[in-house]
């Protein structure tokens, strides 16, 4: 039993002795909440397992990697922040990402896009407007964000998308209608994601190869991007295809207000 009589100095020393070290989660947790470090965990995607990183400001990175260590290394090299594995993705965030991948555009997911140019962010925000199961050409994004000549830069920005699948860069295809590149694993991965959204990629590529860039309806005289949900409702006997918007326009067709097809320079 500690029947000691403590003098003032002794008591004060004993009180100082009550100092303890904070568990590591305190400091790291604060840095994560402040957006100065990140946590990550695996998620299931149409491409199999991937990893998602997040901090207090939002989702910062999604990518495929052989394992957590490889993901961490890439994250540190690319983003330059510290990162540590979490047990799992926070439940709400996991559900939101799953729901977004499944095509629900209403679910809100905060994104941490610090360190990227306003042009890149504009490209990614525009890609978010492309509906599930539909595609648009790079030139469409360029025109929609008011930089019609920046088609190549749009491609580069999409290649640098830090949060693929959530920002659906896979729904942007080459201006000639071919499937194009994809940062999550090349054209094959892109086909797999688009197929998971119900898009028949073989049909898409055949149409492109045949020069059918736009689809119209001879009853409404409206012309669409081929994957626009309005175009896909047109029955075969009323479907007409055009190699260009100019051809459609001279045939008396006006552009669809939903998918807003644009003429593409070469």
């Amino acid at each position: 039993m500690t029947t000691m009589t403590l003098g003032d100095a002794g008591l004060e020393a004993a009180l100082r002795d009550l100092r303890v070290a904070a568990p590591p989660a305190v400091g790291f947790g604060a840095l994560v909440d402040a957006g100065l470090a990140d946590r990550y965990a695996p998620i299931e995607t149409p491409l199999g397992q991937a990893f998602v990183a997040w901090n207090g400001r939002g989702v910062s990175w999604i990518g495929r990697a052989d394992d957590g260590a490889a993901f961490e290394a890439r994250f540190r090299a690319d983003v330059g922040r510290d990162i540590a594995a979490a047990d799992e993705v926070p439940e709400r965030l996991g559900r939101a990402i799953g729901s977004r991948i499944a095509g629900n555009r209403r679910v809100r997911i905060k994104l941490d896009l610090r360190g990227h140019t306003t042009f890149e962010v504009a490209v990614w925000m525009k890609a978010l407007e492309i509906p599930h199961g539909e595609v648009r050409p790079y030139g469409w994004i360029a025109a929609e964000i008011g930089k019609p000549k920046a088609v190549r830069a749009v491609g580069t920005a999409l290649a640098h998308n830090p949060v693929p699948l959530v920002v659906p860069c896979h729904r942007v295809v080459r201006s000639d209608g071919m499937i194009g590149q994809y940062s999550m694993g090349g054209p094959d991965a892109k086909r797999r994601v688009l197929s998971s959204e119900g898009l028949d990629t073989r049909w898409l590529e055949e149409e492109a190869a045949a020069g059918h860039r736009f689809t119209g309806s001879d009853t409404t005289h409206i012309v669409c991007n081929p994957t626009c949900r309005d175009a896909r409702r047109v029955t075969p006997q009323h479907r007409v295809t055009f190699p260009s918007l100019v051809a459609a326009s001279s045939a008396g067709y006006r552009p669809c207000l939903h998918c807003r097809p644009v003429s593409l320079a070469a």
Binding site: R19, V20, A21, A22, V26, G27, A34
Partner: peptide
């Protein structure tokens, strides 16, 4: 500078 603050003050705030 915030990580420096975290290092310097986390133990006392936890205590």
């Amino acid at each position: 500078a915030f990580p420096v603050l975290v290092d310097a003050h986390q133990d006392r705030l936890y205590t």
